[in-house]
């Protein structure tokens, strides 16, 4: 079951007997989607539609798009439905506020989603099944968080690319299997000694939307940096918050989506600043790379502001434009390399 964007409740899908599969577009060239969408829509939407029209998601039984945030997501859903229909498709709305009236609106939307899924499969999604799924998904989140911390002292054997692969695979693999592997990995890591404090890579925070092109991370690793914290939709925003297990299962699942680290489309920029600083503390990060996804309004508006704020705090930062796939690798490498060197010099002073 396709999961488009990070407010889709995976536990619900899992409890209904499907494998949640996160749609992240592709780094492949976009060709088909240009017939339907202008090029000034962000690459994620265009790429997802492109892949869909090319039949790359033909294996999907269903698809949930949530939330209907922006003016690109809505046509994406409609065009997908029309030109590459998936047997069952739903979309979900999520209010932009955090007020109580918004919360009850959102709970209603989630109820509708659950009802629609049940009507389509002809099977009720029981509280017991939901509770089981919550356990599985919470376990995955707890393991990722543990690995996040374990990795901090062992960057020499756990590069940014490796870490991204661990996290990205958690979005598409069967969860039980992935959890088993995470547990093994955590055990192996615990047995390794921590790195020496001296001469480590420059620790960096990565902020942006989604990062699926590993070549960018490879560059960071190669020029003496390491991503030690992030607030990406393919990163901590995905796995950091747990479902509270004391609540009735469905309520817990919805509440998690409602209250988790909010996306920029529903919060003020200072909220994101807070998230960045919190995560940086945990990752002991020394600088920030802003990956501004082109045509993504929440980020194109917010990033210059955030950059000026972190500069005032004396945190070195670099801003790069991206479009899902890395373009102009040579230039990007030079900029990151220069940034890493400058930041180091700043540290030594």
């Amino acid at each position: 079951m396709g999961v488009f964007w990070d407010y889709v409740p995976e536990e619900l899908i899992h409890a209904a007997g499907f494998l949640p599969y996160r749609i992240m577009g592709s780094t492949e060239n976009i060709s088909e989607a240009d017939r339907y969408m202008p090029t000034y829509v962000c690459a994620l939407m265009r790429s997802a539609l492109d892949q869909a029209v090319k039949g790359r998601y033909a294996f999907l039984d269903g698809l949930i798009v949530a939330p209907m945030w922006c003016e690109a997501m809505k046509p994406l859903y409609e065009l997908w439905r029309k030109h590459a229909p998936v047997p069952w498709m739903e979309a979900l709305d999520l209010p932009g506020t955090t007020e109580p009236s918004g919360r009850s609106y959102f709970f209603r939307e989630m109820d509708r989603l659950k009802g629609s899924l049940e009507a389509w499969t002809g099977r009720e999604i029981t509280p017991e099944a939901l509770a089981d799924s919550i356990k599985v998904y919470n376990e995955g989140r707890v393991l990722l968080k543990r690995l996040f911390h374990l990795r901090q002292g062992r960057l020499s054997c756990f590069s940014s690319v490796d870490w991204a692969q661990v996290v990205l695979s958690s979005m598409v693999m069967p969860k039980e299997e992935h959890n088993r592997r995470l547990a093994e990995l955590a055990k192996a890591l615990e047995e390794l000694p921590e790195d020496e404090q001296e001469n480590g890579p420059l620790r960096l925070h990565l902020t942006g939307t989604i990062v699926v092109d590993l070549s960018l991370l490879r560059i960071i690793d190669e020029v003496g940096g390491a991503v030690t914290s992030d607030d990406l939709y393919t990163g901590v925003r995905w796995y950091w918050d747990l479902v509270e297990e004391g609540l009735p299962p469905f309520e817990g699942i919805v509440q998690r989506c409602w209250a988790k680290l909010p996306c920029s489309a529903r919060s003020m920029p200072n909220v994101r600043l807070g998230q960045i600083l919190d995560m940086m503390k945990l990752g002991r990060s020394q600088g920030i790379i802003f990956l501004t996804e082109k045509h993504c309004d929440p980020h194109t508006f917010e990033d210059p502001l955030l950059k000026s704020w972190v500069e005032k705090k004396g945190i070195p930062s670099l801003q790069l434009d991206t479009e899902l796939a890395l373009r102009g690798a040579g230039q990007v490498r030079t900029r990151i390399q220069t940034f890493v060197e400058m930041a180091r010099m700043g540290e030594e002073k």
Binding site: A91, G96, E302
Partner: peptide, 28 residues
């Protein structure tokens, strides 16, 4: 989304109270 994020930039610039009239997405 523009109106929402643009006004946040203004709110940083002018440092005055801001209210956001939220709205549901329709016509799905």
């Amino acid at each position: 989304m523009t109106q929402y994020k643009w006004w946040q930039v203004l709110s940083d610039m002018w440092d005055v109270p801001i209210y956001v009239v939220d709205a549901p997405y329709l016509g799905l």
